[in-house]
Amino acid sequence: MSEKELKVQEKQLVQQENEETKPEKYFVPAVDIFETDEQVTVVAEMPGVKSTGVDVSLEDDVLTIRGHREEDEIDGRLLLQEYESGSYLRRFTMAETIDRDKIRASMSGGLLKVELPKAAPAQPRRIEVQAG
């Protein structure tokens, strides 16, 4: 399976309901999401984003991953442009209950990895009925 040829995936611009005040381009990063018994892991492609430019937040079961890319300055004339660069933004609604305090995010080689440990299932509480 790993022998197949990679194909070009066109970058998609984020369709936003509200407009940004800053004219910044946001692209939809490609993601892998997988789940084990303990946690949900989100891996997103964010080339050019440094670990300081990443912003991960979980609000009302909506996970937002945002990667801010600094403009790279190149001294020169553009001869060929096959891709555009910009920041990345994507939102997901989480179906599971996540332990917010234990969310970890790491960035390496242009890949953002967010680990979201599941919260321990709420223990059923027995309510004693007292005979009276």
């Binding site: 022998e3 197949k4 040829e5 990679l6 490609a30 892998d32 999401i33 789940e35 492609e45 890949l111």
Partner: peptide, 11 residues
């Protein structure tokens, strides 16, 4: 279990 697989591997 994979929910989404958008990142491809290959040559």
């Amino acid at each position: 279990s994979y929910h989404r697989r958008e990142i491809e591997a290959g040559n």
